[in-house]
């Protein structure tokens, strides 16, 4: 019976397309997200993904490919963040917060204005609608995935050095600014490619949660990418079925599965698990201690 539940929906073309998207974005997000995570740039992923909405809206209004519009918006927002960060005393996290919310607000405004006339649904952009992907969506996502994964393999050792030790990499003459820009492009492309499955609000989870889950379990970057990809694929495929059987929005369903897997790793990881290494938790929390002291 469960086997039927897995295969039966796949006789439909739309389910086959959804499955393809689920697998591709699961792998792609985990690989690119690993770089985001080790560079502590999770917030940058969030900023780019929210900014992408503005590009989508503009592309829709102008009638050009929404992938192109979203991509340009992602690059523009990163440029704006870097401009604020380097040319003013405002710090990076504040710059991200400002740019993220500005682009997001613009995107929501524009989509709200045009959604009635164009029969589009803001919710699908925000939270994904994996069951509604078209053949060209699958094609675009496949092209982006193959391209980014190939570049990652070809530049793996340089990116490894650069993301671990920027100064050291720069000192041996690696083009660190180019590598940095390339990573930003890869993040923007990945977000665009994953938008259909999880939407712009929740794509951050696909970028960060599977690599973070793997980070708790394995010690090396490439292992983190491979295991993270497995976690990502399991999450997105199960999320897709949850969406199909229970009529849930696909993004939240996928994210909830990924978060559940992270929780398991957090509790039971052999090296870092909260339950397998309860040593640190024997001290009463400092917050509680301070509250007790106040009551005296």
């Amino acid at each position: 019976m469960p086997i039927d539940a897995f295969f039966e929906p796949l006789q439909y073309g739309f389910m086959q397309r959804s499955l393809a998207i689920a697998v591709l974005t699961g792998i792609l997000c985990a690989v690119v997200g690993s770089y985001l995570m080790v560079q502590r740039l999770a917030l940058l992923g969030d900023a780019i993904s929210h900014s992408v909405l503005a590009g989508l809206a503009v592309a829709f209004i102008l009638g050009v490919n929404i992938f192109v519009g979203a991509f340009i918006a992602g690059v523009l927002s990163t440029g704006a963040i870097n401009l604020i960060r380097t040319r003013s005393p405002v710090k990076e996290d504040a710059a991200m917060g400002i740019v993220l919310s500005a682009f997001f607000a613009l995107g929501i405004t524009l989509i709200t204005l045009v959604q009635k006339d164009n029969k589009i649904d803001l919710n699908h952009f925000l939270f994904g609608n994996i069951l509604a992907v078209t053949g060209s969506d699958v094609r675009d996502t496949a092209i982006i995935s193959v391209f980014i994964l190939a570049v990652t393999v070809l530049l793996y050792k340089e990116l490894h050095f650069y993301t671990f030790d920027k100064l050291g990499a720069q000192a041996v003459g690696l083009p660190v600014n180019l590598l940095d820009f390339g990573l930003t492009l890869a993040i923007a492309l990945t977000i665009v490619a994953s938008m259909k499955a999880v939407g712009v609000v929740l794509v951050l989870s696909m970028l960060i949660t599977p690599p973070a889950t793997a980070y708790l379990l394995v010690p090396r970057l490439h292992q983190m990418m491979v295991l993270g990809a497995a976690v990502g694929v399991v999450s997105s495929v199960s999320g897709m079925y949850l969406s199909y059987f229970y009529n849930l929005p696909s993004g939240p369903a996928i994210v909830l599965v990924a978060s559940g897997l992270f929780l398991l790793a957090l509790l039971f990881s052999p090296r870092h698990g909260l339950l397998t290494h309860p040593a640190g938790s024997q001290q009463p929390s400092p917050l509680l201690q301070e509250i007790k002291r106040l009551r005296k």
């Binding site: 080790v38 050792k157 490894h160 671990f164 990499a169 010690p219 090396r220 970057l221 292992q223 983190m224």
Partner: peptide, 11 residues
């Protein structure tokens, strides 16, 4: 960072 001693030296 998720790297072993070997990874770092190979850099």
């Amino acid at each position: 960072y998720p790297a072993t001693v070997w990874d770092v030296v190979m850099m």
